[in-house]
Simulated assay, not measured.
Amino acid sequence: MRSAEHLFEGSDGGGNGIAVRAAGALCWRVRRKQLEVLLIHRQRYDDWSWPKGKLDQGETLPECAVREVAEEVGLPIKLGIPLPTIRYPVKPGLKEVHYWAAATGDMPPLPDGKEVDTVLWCQVGKARGLLTNPSDVVPLDALAAAHEAGRLETWPLIVVRHAKAKPRSAWTRAEGERPLAATGKRQALYVQRLLMAWHPDKVVTSGWVRCLTTIAPYAQASRAKVKVTHWLTEADHKRKPAKVGALFDRLLAKGTPVAVCTHRPVLPTVLATLADHMDDGLADALPGTDPHLAPGEMLVAHVSVAAPGTIVALEAHKPYDD
């Protein structure tokens, strides 16, 4: 595994001739200073693997990963760093499985036997020997390498561009009052569902209507603490862009999972600040051209616990646009 990882994709993982898309997670914990992972045994296939499954209709990859872990092993999780995607042939064609790390110290309940009949916490070496599908070792090795490098335990800082708004040309009132378009309102519900995969405890947002409306469904569903700051608006950022950089420096120093909702013209300052907190290889993966993020799109920066303020992985997820 490289010193830092990135994953940029759409809500369904894109095309590339993939017949089946799936997602799952490598649940991990540390016991007696040893990294342990959670394996499942499926009686239907008589195999040892990771909790995973196919996307439901309209579901995003992160949502699928969280749901499958809950269904197969009964554990609620929050996603950590993205792990390597694996591909292998199945009857319909090529299957692509996206994986995330997920820290948990809980012992799962006894499986119901419908899909999984046994779960097992074990150290990496034993897991490597038990896994039935050789390709399942790839995310395991990446997980172990991240642990050895002190980059496995992270918290998320999520940058959200507000959802699609009514056109400026069709709005004659104050710019701060310009609302979301019909598509934007649907994107806001997507944002709510997707943010649940990381479940940030705090939301910081521009006070303009289109940002407040984008983040409202998540704030209501999660009861996250919401803070409105005028420096994230287009107008105040234009006056003093350094205030936005200082805000992100403070958020990175605090170490609290957070989502930040802002506007397209503010994003260059945000991304430049984030780049200062990661190595050059990862910074090269940041979106470099305008508009940087599509309406409703989010950039998830995974921040190291062992090295406070250091971003070690990135991923981006786009909303649908109908």
Score class of each variant (00 low, 15 high):
M1Y: 05
S3G: 09
S3Y: 02
L7R: 06
F8A: 02
G10C: 00
N16C: 02
N16Y: 10
I18F: 07
A19W: 05
V20T: 05
A23R: 12
G24T: 03
G24Q: 06
C27W: 01
R29V: 10
V30E: 15
L35S: 12
E36T: 06
L38T: 08
L39P: 06
R44P: 00
D46T: 10
D47A: 09
P51D: 05
D56S: 13
E59L: 05
T60A: 14
P62A: 12
P62T: 00
A65K: 05
V66I: 12
V66A: 14
V66R: 06
E68N: 10
E68L: 15
E71Q: 14
E71M: 10
G74Q: 06
L75Y: 07
L75K: 11
I77P: 02
G80I: 09
I81L: 15
P82I: 03
R87K: 12
P89T: 11
G93E: 08
Y99W: 15
W100V: 06
W100A: 02
A101M: 09
T104E: 05
T104G: 04
T104V: 03
T104F: 03
G105S: 10
M107C: 11
P109V: 04
L110G: 08
G113V: 02
T118F: 08
V119H: 02
K126I: 11
A127S: 09
G129F: 00
L131P: 12
P134R: 12
V137N: 03
V138K: 10
L140S: 04
L140I: 10
A146W: 03
E148A: 15
E148Q: 14
A149K: 13
A149N: 06
G150V: 07
L152M: 11
T154C: 13
V159P: 03
R161D: 04
A165H: 09
K166T: 12
K166I: 13
P167T: 08
R168P: 01
S169L: 13
W171G: 01
P179Y: 06
A181E: 06
T183F: 02
Y190R: 13
V191N: 00
Q192S: 15
Q192G: 06
R193Q: 07
L195E: 01
K202V: 15
V203E: 01
V204G: 00
T205S: 15
T205D: 08
S206Y: 05
G207K: 04
W208E: 07
V209N: 02
R210N: 04
C211L: 02
L212Q: 09
A219Q: 09
Q220K: 10
A224C: 05
V228T: 14
A235N: 13
D236P: 08
H237G: 04
R239I: 13
P241A: 11
A242Y: 07
V244D: 04
G245K: 11
D249K: 15
R250E: 14
G255N: 11
V258F: 03
V260R: 10
P265N: 13
P265V: 09
V266F: 06
V266K: 08
P268Y: 02
T269D: 12
T269H: 11
A272P: 04
D280I: 07
L282W: 08
D284M: 13
A285M: 13
A285V: 03
G288D: 12
G288H: 14
G288K: 15
E297A: 15
L299T: 05
V305P: 01
V312S: 01
A313T: 03
L314Q: 01
L314W: 09
E315L: 04
E315F: 00
H317I: 09
K318Y: 00
K318G: 02
P319I: 00
D322N: 11
